[in-house]
């Protein structure tokens, strides 16, 4: 029982991180119609940007969080406006290839500036609390609480603001959004702001939970894609549920499978979903 609870806690923590990544991926996929392969590297970038104020100014990590998120938003928008925007008129698959290139560019930039080794936000050990045989680290609470706050903010943005509604409208039907008079490029920029910001938060939480490494984001791209597909492309709320399912499934699988194969579980769930219900649990878009 204690083991099950422990895995559940790990699963919720991992799932929160996957959800944050999957929200942006799902929004971008729904609005721009291509799977953004550089999303994992936006996650990495967010984690490393947050390291900057910590290591240079000695700023507290809580404040650096905002810097990391903001800087990643800027990069996401810049990549879109400089590169993806020029390729929007051609086939979406060209955007896909371009995003694979961006993934490698971002990763090599991280390696150039921060080196290929591991990095940590703080040197100290995060002492876990023990509650009836279950370990909970303070960071775990921070991560889950942070994810919940971000999801609530996202919800308010999507439901209450004109831009958020327009984003959902574009995800529903981009052509109709265009003829309705919605300023498409403005909505796209906002999509990258939200997607980039959420990705950065995922990276920062991942770095807090484990460590910083130049391929940290690429390694979780598969579960993040799986979460987005499970939830239905273009359905940010579905992405949250998808992230939690993938996170929990990966942790529970370690009871019978060797832990390195966790991504295989995400892969299997994703492929099953694609074969039997490609629109996802929450009926996202297929086209």
């Amino acid at each position: 029982m204690a083991e099950f609870l422990q895995l559940t806690i790990y699963g919720i923590v991992a799932g929160s991180i996957f959800s944050l990544g999957a929200i942006g991926l799902s929004l971008v996929y729904g609005i721009l119609r291509f799977p953004h392969f550089a999303h994992g590297d936006l996650i990495t970038l967010g984690a490393y940007f947050t390291l900057l104020p910590v290591s240079i100014l000695g700023a507290p990590p809580e404040l650096s969080f905002f810097f990391g998120v903001a800087a990643t938003m800027v990069v996401a928008v810049a990549v879109d406006q400089i590169l993806y925007r020029r390729l929007r008129k051609v086939a979406p698959v060209i955007l896909l290839i371009a995003s694979v290139g961006v993934a490698l560019i971002l990763r090599s930039l991280v390696q150039l500036f921060w080196g290929a080794g591991n990095q940590y936000y703080s040197q100290g050990i995060d002492m876990p609390w023990r509650l009836s045989g279950v370990n909970v680290k303070p960071d775990h609470l921070l991560i889950v609480a942070g994810a919940v706050i971000l999801v609530v903010l996202l919800h308010l943005f999507l439901q209450k603001t004109k831009t958020g509604k327009a984003m959902r409208a574009m995800s529903d039907n981009a052509d109709l959004a265009q003829v309705t008079g919605i300023e498409v490029n403005k909505v796209i920029i906002w999509t990258w702001v939200i997607g980039g910001g959420m990705a950065a938060a995922a990276g920062i939480f991942l770095g807090l939970d484990t460590r910083l490494h130049p391929v940290m984001g690429w390694r979780i791209l598969l579960p993040v894609f799986a979460a987005a597909i499970l939830g239905g492309i273009g359905r940010p709320y579905g992405a949250i549920v998808g992230g939690l399912i993938i996170g929990l499934a990966q942790e529970y699988s370690t009871v019978i499978l060797s832990p390195p194969y966790k991504p295989a579980v995400a892969f299997a769930l994703m492929v099953i979903m694609l074969i039997f219900k490609p629109t996802g649990l929450f009926a996202g878009r297929k086209a």
Binding site: P35, F37, V93, L96, P260, Y261, F267, V271, L274
Partner: peptide, 28 residues
């Protein structure tokens, strides 16, 4: 047999999964 019925972009996502699993397999 599992993935070729999928659309090009889904196949692309599935193929990184295969590459990752093969990599983990060779390593483990």
């Amino acid at each position: 047999l599992i993935t070729l019925n999928l659309r090009a972009d889904y196949l692309a996502i599935a193929s990184i999964g295969i590459a990752e699993i093969v990599r983990l397999f060779l390593k483990t």
